[in-house]
């Protein structure tokens, strides 16, 4: 070995620069000279080049299902660029500020009058709430509609645009935050959650796939999957029961969503399992 010869340790030290093409002429020459007579280093270079070539030739993959439905459900109906809106509207900042000021004053005035009138009406009127007519009763200009009862606005109940009572929980928006919708107040109809809407269709589709693939899969695997599904179903039932008692709970809604997501993940995994040989 003469002084120009390179050791494997030295070669390792400049391997990165070699692959990046960052070695100067003499260094590259010394490196290649060493590699040409060293089985270890020449094998290393060949393997790395092989890996790089194969990585570049990896095929494009396709998802196992069409993802568009999920995307479409999440995208907003219209996207308007700020630039376009500005040029179309032509409003200056001054005009916007003035309009905002007017809006604030108007809102405050309406709120003041509505509140003071409501308080005055409450003090003056001692009749039961159910015997009163529509919101017009407050101003005394219209008769009550037969057969329709209206609730007095109080801390627990407000009246919506139709005059029907709105529960405090719904008014506070807590139910909306929790993503729950009761189809009919006080009825036996099931609670429909945002999680149901998100995962319901997907679960149905995947369960159909599982049913159709049952014969192709290893029976032990199917048993394990079914045991897991039972556990998940128990958790789903518990979350639903708890959510029924407290529909405004964001925590419970999240729990249900998480469990349903687990179910989807399990079913997807099963859908992709190879058939038994």
């Amino acid at each position: 070995m003469n002084e120009d010869n390179m050791t494997c340790a030295e070669a390792d030290g400049i391997l990165l620069e070699y692959f990046e093409g960052a070695l100067d002429g003499p260094s590259r020459q010394r490196f290649e000279q060493h590699a040409s007579s060293c089985a270890r280093c020449s094998g290393l270079i060949r393997d790395v080049n092989d890996i790089t070539a194969q990585a570049a030739a990896l095929p494009v993959m396709a998802p196992s299902r069409d993802l568009w439905q999920g995307i479409e459900a999440r995208i907003q109906p219209a996207v308007v660029s700020i630039g376009a809106a500005r040029s179309a509207g032509g409003l200056s900042r001054g005009w916007i500020a003035a309009a905002a000021s007017v809006l604030i004053v108007a809102t405050a005035s309406v709120t003041y009058f509505a509140t003071s009138r409501s308080i005055a009406a409450r003090v003056a009127d001692s009749r039961p709430a159910v015997s009163r007519s529509a919101p017009e009763a407050g101003v005394g200009t219209a008769a009550a509609e037969p057969g329709v009862a209206y609730a007095e606005p109080d801390e627990n109940n407000l009246v919506d645009e139709t005059g029907a009572a709105v529960p405090a929980a719904a008014r506070s928006g807590a139910g909306a935050r929790a993503g729950t919708t009761t189809l009919a107040s006080g009825s036996a109809q099931p609670l429909v959650t945002a999680a149901d809407m998100e995962y319901g269709d997907e679960i149905q589709r995947l369960q159909a796939v599982l049913a159709s693939r049952r014969q192709q899969l290893d029976p032990t695997t199917v048993q394990v999957v079914e045991d897991n599904l039972k556990l998940i179903e128990t958790a789903v039932a518990q979350a639903r029961a708890a959510l029924k008692g407290d529909p405004a709970s964001g925590f419970l809604a999240d729990k249900l969503s998480n469990v349903l997501e687990k179910k989807v993940e399990l079913l997807r995994t099963v859908a992709l399992l190879p058939s038994r040989s």
């Binding site: 993959m61 998802p63 196992s64 995307i71 999440r74 995208i75 997807r268």
Partner: peptide
Amino acid sequence: RVRGEELTQDVFV
């Protein structure tokens, strides 16, 4: 692959 599908949806959104 499962996570890849979820992320793909996030990308297009």
